[in-house]
């Protein structure tokens, strides 16, 4: 099967690119470059994409979100459960911390008394992952308020896991790098599945853009039309221009913004 995947990501207004705490999978450019968009064709029987939104209240949440999407991108969806994803991700997280701290090195530039409790609190992120299979089935799972939207023939088929703009709060459930309460995670890990047809598009988004998307649909608009053209010659501007317009004209929250667009062929 042939899929075109485009990824876009920008930090909060006033923040540097390296301060962006969102991550997406596939990672189409070296993280250090943090390019704001990229497009690639995938010829595969099984395509996995993901978005994780690192939370401001956690130290190194951008690293944690990057680990989560990378692990989600490699886990077999047939076996998915919160415990395995979490265990794999925490192993990588633990190795990252040990490697950085080897030889007594400091992990941050924080005052010494503050580094240890900050690391104990850990990092937090939401996660949404989507698998498209060659038999025209799709499966998604999510923790928190990052969303997927399924569009067919210029109509919205599904908004998930949230489907109203008012559903977004400042306190979504977050996956913790340190919390050991796996039962709680299992309770918040939800899944959905369906079928896709050639020509369908899927959009994965972190919360600010997803809230904007739902606000637009509630105003009887078709926000996927603007997203569909991003990064193409048909787009009136860049992703930066589009995001600035959403923030200034439509009141989109000033947050990190990430979009993964999948076009099926």
């Amino acid at each position: 099967m042939s899929f075109f995947v485009s990824t876009f990501s920008l930090p909060k207004r006033g923040h540097a690119p390296h301060e962006n705490q969102d991550s997406c999978w596939p990672s189409l450019s070296p993280i250090s470059l943090r390019r704001t968009n990229n497009t690639k064709e995938f010829q595969t029987d099984k395509l996995v994409t993901a978005v994780a939104d690192g939370a401001t209240e956690g130290l190194l949440s951008e690293i944690w979100s990057r680990i989560l999407v990378a692990r989600a991108g490699r886990i077999d969806f047939a076996d998915v459960n919160g415990a395995k994803l979490l265990a794999d991700s925490r192993n990588v997280w633990g190795r990252f911390k040990s490697r950085k701290q080897s030889g007594g090195r400091r992990l941050t530039k924080l005052p010494e008394w503050l580094e240890e409790p900050s690391l104990e609190i850990g990092a937090f992120a939401t996660l949404i992952a989507l698998e498209l299979a060659a038999d025209h089935t799709w499966t998604a799972y999510a923790v928190g308020d990052s969303c997927v939207f399924h569009v067919r023939d210029d109509a919205l088929m599904l908004a998930w896991p949230l489907n109203k703009a008012d559903d977004f709060s400042n306190r979504p459930y977050l996956i913790s790098s340190e919390e050991r309460d796996d039962e709680s995670l299992k309770a918040h890990l939800i899944g959905v599945c369906g079928r896709w047809a050639q020509g369908d598009s899927f959009f994965l988004m972190s919360d600010a853009l997803a809230a904007w998307f739902l606000t637009m649909t509630e105003r009887d608009k078709k926000p996927w039309q603007a997203l569909r053209d991003l990064g193409t010659d048909d787009a009136p501007g860049t992703f930066e221009d589009f995001t600035a317009m959403c923030r200034d004209k439509d009141g989109m929250r000033n947050d990190d913004v990430t979009l993964v667009r999948i076009d099926t062929f």
């Binding site: 301060e19 941050t108 924080l110």
Partner: peptide
């Protein structure tokens, strides 16, 4: 103040 510092802690500093 300790908790506020924790909330505002980032790798590059508070």
């Amino acid at each position: 103040l300790r908790n506020l510092s924790l909330k505002c802690a980032r790798p590059e500093g508070v």
